[in-house]
Structure formats: structure tokens, C-alpha cells
């Protein structure tokens, strides 16, 4: 494993402990790394299928859990399709962690307003668990989550336990399109973002989801009164090497893999085409 220290492109092995079906095209893999690979919520890793390829994911588990890591992965391309075929006992590779984390120390004593879309709830689950570790340190933890349909909601079995976690936790979910089983709100996630009861001056917002959702959620947050510097965005691009060399994930003068993926909006808002 010392190889990983010398060779930044080498991975460490990790055993698949469990595979959980989240939706028809999203699974959570619980991995047990054979080596030390600690991360902080918001950072990402490369999950490798040895000899086949790798793709970047932000772990979705509590960064304090040392034994295992969760990765919630949508089947969306060549590598992820194959990752979805993994079974307990299989061995995959892990490389990382890379990039910036959520600055939890800046969130202390504040109202933390979390906005997620689709599988973008994965990094936010890691954030939620990180906040829950010291739940008393935060004034409020508000989650607003939008899924395409009721069947596309991830972490269904856990969301209720988040709601019940403590009095300062507030969870709201919406679906773009409902179905007969759904009695909740119908509409885009921006329709459930409101500043009611929110002390915006003492709040931070965190957004993660598909690019179009990130764009309109950010605009809505600005409308609600958030300042650019209060909005933390997970700007996921085609992060490949993870160390700012391969050139794929450039955003203006930054590389998402090392200068991000977590950026505050003020840092990137003047750059061209950030939402593309």
C-alpha cells in the first residue's frame, strides 16, 4: 500500500461488503478498504474496476466511520454499469480522497440549508452524517430534496430517521412528477425552497445535484437573500487524475479535482459557462 504514496495513480483494494438497491438505476456499495483511506465530507475518490476503468464519486457515508465507506452510484456510463454488477466479496479499487471538503467549522452555530437533487443527495448524506456527529453545534439542519419521481428517491429507508434525529432537523422532499403512491409535494426542488423561519444572515446553503438543478437552486437561494459567499456548491466535472494534471475538470482558472469540488459561489460566479 506504500505504493499509493509514491504513485498517485495507484489504488488500494477495497472489498464489497454490501450492495443496496436505492432505485432502479442507483445502488449503494458498502466497501471495506484494505488500507487507510480517510476522507472528509465533500471530498471525492476514484472508484476503480482494476483493468477496466475508474470514475469519481463522493463517499456518501459518515466520515467518522473508519471501517467502511459507502458510495451511492447511478448506472450512467461504461464504468458505472459494470460497478452495478458488483457483488459482496468482489474487490474494487479506491484512490483518493481528493479535493476540498465542506468547511464544517464555518457551519457551527449556524442554520445549515442543504439542497439536493437526484443522486446528488449522496455527498449530502455524508454531510448530514458529519453534521449529526455534533448535532448540537448547529442551530438548524434543513434538507430540501428533489427527485424526478417517487421511485427515484434515494435513501428511502433512512430519511425518516433523519427527520426524527433531533428537534433542529427539518426534511422536505418533492418529486418533479408524482404517482398514486405519492402524497407529498409535487414540483421542482426550487418550489420548496423558502426563507420562512430562516435566519439568512446566520445561514449557509449547500447545493448538490445535476447542473441544471444547481443553477436554478443557486438563483433561488440568491433570491431568498443568501449571499454568494454563503452558497457552497459541489461542482462535479470530469475529474480523472484527481491531482490537477490531466486537465479534464477545468473551470476557469481552477481544477474541480483540487480547487473544488466544493466551491463557494463567489469564487466561480464570474467564470464563463459554469453551469454547462
Amino acid at each position: 500500500m506504500s505504493d499509493c504514496k509514491k504513485n498517485p495513480y495507484a489504488f488500494i483494494e477495497a472489498e464489497v461488503i454490501k450492495v443496496t438497491d436505492e432505485t432502479s438505476n442507483i445502488k449503494t456499495l458498502t466497501l471495506k478498504p484494505r488500507g487507510d483511506i480517510a476522507f472528509r465530507a465533500g471530498q471525492f475518490m476514484e472508484v476503480t474496476l482494476p483493468g477496466i476503468g475508474e470514475a469519481p464519486f463522493t463517499p456518501s457515508s459518515n466520515h467518522n466511520s473508519k471501517e467502511t465507506l459507502d458510495f451511492t452510484i447511478m448506472s450512467a456510463g461504461r464504468v458505472t454499469k459494470l460497478i452495478h454488477q458488483a457483488k459482496a466479496g468482489d474487490v474494487v479499487g479506491l484512490r483518493g480522497p481528493y479535493g476540498t471538503r465542506y468547511p464544517l467549522e464555518q457551519f457551527k452555530g449556524r442554520e445549515v440549508f442543504i439542497v439536493g437533487g437526484g443522486v446528488g443527495l449522496a455527498p449530502l448524506r455524508a454531510l448530514l452524517y458529519a453534521l449529526f456527529n455534533d448535532i448540537g453545534d448547529y442551530k438548524k439542519i434543513i434538507l430540501r430534496y428533489g427527485a424526478r419521481s417517487p421511485g427515484d428517491i434515494v435513501y428511502k429507508s433512512e430519511i425518516d430517521s433523519w427527520r426524527r434525529k433531533a428537534g433542529n432537523v427539518d426534511v422536505g422532499i418533492t418529486c418533479d412528477v408524482g404517482d398514486p403512491s405519492w402524497s407529498g409535494h409535487v414540483g421542482l426542488v426550487t418550489t420548496i425552497l423558502s426563507n420562512d423561519g430562516l435566519d439568512i444572515g446566520n445561514a449557509v446553503a449547500i447545493v448538490c445535484g445535476p447542473p441544471i438543478m444547481m443553477k436554478f437552486a443557486t438563483f433561488k437561494l440568491l433570491d431568498l437573500g443568501f449571499k454568494d459567499s454563503q452558497i457552497h456548491l459541489s461542482m462535479e466535472k470530469n475529474m480523472s487524475c484527481g491531482i490537477g494534471k490531466c486537465g479534464h475538470c477545468r473551470i476557469g482558472p481552477y481544477y474541480a479535482c483540487k480547487d473544488g469540488p466544493v466551491f463557494t459561489y463567489d469564487k466561480i460566479k464570474s467564470l464563463p459557462n459554469i453551469w454547462d
Binding site: G51, E54, N238, G247
Partner: peptide
């Protein structure tokens, strides 16, 4: 990445930002 009987191997290969796949992401 590729593999043969000897196991998995990784290569660093020149890429080109003019290729349509260069910045492409999932989905």
C-alpha cells in the same frame, strides 16, 4: 486501464480537448 494474464495495468495516454468526450461526464 487494461488487463491481460499478468493482471491489471494503467496507462497515461495523451488526450485532446478537441475530442467531444474530453469533458463529458456521467449521464
Amino acid at each position: 486501464d487494461e488487463k491481460d494474464q499478468a493482471g491489471a495495468k494503467r496507462f497515461r495516454v495523451w488526450d485532446a480537448c478537441l475530442y467531444s468526450t474530453f469533458a463529458k461526464v456521467a449521464g
